[in-house]
Design a protein around this nucleic acid. Structure first.
Lengths: 246, 246
DNA sequence: GTTTTATTGTATCATTATGGTACAATAGTA
DNA sequence: TACTATTGTACCATAATGATACAATAAAAC
């Protein structure tokens, strides 16, 4: 976010938004055997934060989350799932915002809306890593991907939000079969297993993982992939959900 | 709630609360083989609603939910779990509130805070049915228990909230072993099975259910219960969670 | 007091799911 | 042509689950 954007944020028409309510998004991507989280560097500070925003009076909360993500990533149709509302009474962020305001030459009274206590709705998002261009968003504040197990100290309670998002994702992996939303259209069984191992934080036995996934009858086998290694070529699979699933 | 209480609600100091954010509680109890939900009859109308309220500026959201429940039931230390935030843009309830205001002789301008769009945080609560006296709360609006499968048409989107609470409870039964929070200190295996069957909406095989629950090593067997039936007396069990659980 | 009845606790079998090993198939490399 | 690393699948051992059988017993019927 450029200074100008920050100024607009602090000056924005608070009538247009629901006060004291925010959205924070934990965007997951899968790249090089790692589960990544998208973080935003707050204007000219060493602080990293989750991408977030506010809810317009005339939009659904779910739509607000989608809009916020679009503004950051330029991507539509991102898979989004609300997972928790964070509502501790001390969720006000006066110090950080005062510091940023000072940097961009803004003076704000004690009663500025941003100094109030905020309840934040946590969403997690699953994206196809290569399809997201983090520089293509409307907002110019620098973004970066971090390994979910190497997330730096974040502002506010954002580390806690990441943790809870990860736990929810782990539970959802088998329940909702959301893992495929982190992979491209076609993928090998090894890539899928690597994804599961990374998210769950455990090693799985290759043969049994393959048997279990195939027995679910949710994968269509396409052609073989001839590429690279000095070994048998793996098949490529495509996710075909059963009718009673999403 | 008496007319006086309703008047206080509409007149209350909105500065003291977070605007446009509410809490709705789905209170579950287990009685006579049925899963019951606590509903509130809205002041002199045929409308039933979930017990709910608002969040004070100086309290955690979780504490607000506990306070709201205490005001209704007079009970402390109720098991509470937040499960979803409902945030459709059309969640404003002008019609019903106008009707109630008319009944109690209140006139309110178009800009009254209650007419705004609200985001509501859904909590489900698990209580020991016989220990809750629904007439003992501070609020006098009439409450009643309804079979969760016979809930009447509720105001706003409250039927949807009940449905989502039930689904969350079903998933939590095995995951968090919360079922015991609906039973008294000691109970028979039959009562526990009946609870599971009612919540999950399926019939379970008695012998296998018993084997599964006992193998979890979370029950302590106490004395036998001699009471009633012309048959062998069942043992009474007490829930003893393992250390790595809550 | 004896028999009957309904329910409880447990044992046992069959079936399915899961953990773990073995091995043939094969695309590329030496 | 032999070798290597990985893949797909078969196979066995163990654990979990589905289903049936049966002895034990508190109260009611007689």
């Amino acid at each position: 976010m450029e200074t100008n954007e920050r100024q607009q944020l602090y000056a924005f028409d608070e009538q247009r938004y629901i006060p004291q309510l925010s959205i924070d998004c934990v965007v997951f991507g899968f790249h090089e055997q790692q589960l990544k989280v998208l973080l935003v560097n707050m204007h000219q500070t060493p602080y990293w934060a989750l991408p977030g925003g506010f809810i317009q009076q005339n939009e659904d909360v779910d739509d607000a989350a989608a809009r916020i993500l679009f503004q950051r990533t330029g991507a539509h149709d991102i898979y989004l799932e609300q997972f928790y509302a964070f509502g501790k009474v001390n969720r006000n962020f006066t110090d950080v915002h005062r510091q940023i305001m000072a940097q961009i030459g803004l003076k704000a009274g004690e009663d500025h809306w941003i100094f109030r206590r905020f309840v934040s709705l946590g969403y997690y998002a699953l994206v196809h890593f290569p399809e997201v261009d983090i520089s293509s968003g409307m907002l110019k504040e620098p973004c970066a991907w971090f390994d979910v197990h190497q997330v730096p100290a974040l502002i506010f309670d954002h580390n806690e939000i990441v943790q809870k998002a990860l736990e929810t994702l782990q539970r959802s992996l088998d329940e909702k079969l959301v893992g495929f939303k982190l992979l491209p259209e076609t993928f090998t069984m090894g890539e899928l297993q690597s994804l599961y191992e990374t998210i769950l934080g455990v090693r799985l036995l290759r043969t049994n993982f393959q048997r279990k996934i195939l027995s679910m009858q949710i994968l269509e086998r396409t052609e073989k992939r001839f590429s690279g290694g000095a070994h048998k070529a793996p098949y490529l699979y495509r996710f075909i959900p059963k009718l009673n699933q999403i």
